[in-house]
């Protein structure tokens, strides 16, 4: 059973992480190519605190706080630059994070941090806890989507200038989206550190940022159910792909490309098309 429990934990953490990006990119339309940096901030914060003897449950809110605070700072960048420029800026933030952590001896440098103290939970309980966190994030997403804030988010995603003209305080909403999304990424990072008990800078690099963006996009950008399903499936796909062995990354990249090429709305759009064939012609 332990293998399945471990896989389920990985799944839950990925779902949480993907949903956190979905808040920023899916709901509010702010593309981020450096989201893994916040996973890393959460993981390092929680890992260092746990090593300093702070109990596991207390490391979670602190990891969220630190990641969210840095998220707001990066959010300020989104006020200054837009669209493609923002994509590249966030990518830069990701590289900067890894580049800085690599050189910090206090953070274990290139060697990373290992032997992170146990949470005291059994593997099964920890898995259930991670699943509960992912479920909570999904509920939060569904709620945000429905409330006033979510409507403003999607209006900003559609047409920022019009929203601005309407007298809505766009910066405040953008920063809120970044704060929420990055704090959740921090939570995912804290769980990640606890799950693997070992973290190193390379685990939070550009590839990881791309992977999580793929999860969101393949699921259907903005769709909570779509993103949840795709994150769950894509996160364990590499383990399944062991069968296909050396073709794993080829399939992964190919899948990403084909999905965008033939169904840019992701799985959510694909499912819709299958169940509502009359909409085939619609854009």
């Amino acid at each position: 059973m332990e293998y399945e429990i471990s896989l389920a934990t990985t799944m839950a953490i990925s779902v949480l992480f993907a949903l956190s990006l979905n808040l920023i990119t899916g709901f509010c339309g702010q593309i981020s190519l450096g989201h893994a940096a916040f996973l890393g901030v959460g993981a390092y914060t929680a890992g260092m605190l746990a090593k300093a003897g702070v109990p596991f449950l207390l490391t979670l809110p602190l990891a969220m706080l630190v990641a969210g605070a840095l998220g707001v700072i990066v959010g300020f960048a989104s006020l200054r630059v837009r669209a493609d420029f923002l994509a590249i800026t966030t990518m830069g933030v990701g590289f900067l994070f890894v580049g800085i952590v690599r050189q910090q001896d206090a953070l274990g440098g290139e060697m990373g941090i290992s032997a992170i103290p146990d949470s005291g939970m059994s593997k099964l309980v920890f898995m259930l806890f991670a699943v509960a966190m992912a479920a909570a994030a999904a509920l939060l997403s569904a709620y945000v989507r429905r409330c006033w804030m979510g409507r403003v988010f999607s209006a900003i995603a559609e047409d920022e200038d019009t929203v601005r003209v309407m007298g809505i305080d766009v910066p405040r909403f953008k920063l809120t989206a970044f704060a929420l999304g990055t704090a959740l990424a921090g939570l995912a990072g804290a769980l990640y550190a606890q799950h693997l008990k070992f973290i190193a800078p390379d685990s939070f690099g550009f590839i990881e940022s791309i992977t999580v963006l793929s999860m969101v996009v393949v699921g259907g950008i903005g769709s909570v159910i779509g993103v949840t399903v795709s994150a769950a499936v894509l996160s364990v796909l590499p383990s399944w792909f062991q069968v296909i062995g050396t073709y794993k990354l080829l399939v992964y990249g190919g899948l990403l490309f084909l999905m965008m090429r033939f169904s840019p709305g992701g799985m959510a759009a694909l499912v819709k098309r299958i169940f509502h064939p009359d909409r085939w012609g619609a854009k």
């Binding site: 791309i210 990249g253 990403l256 999905m259 965008m260 090429r261």
Partner: peptide, 8 residues
């Protein structure tokens, strides 16, 4: 994203 997939 299509481009990133293509590159990988």
């Amino acid at each position: 994203i299509a481009s990133i997939g293509l590159y990988i």
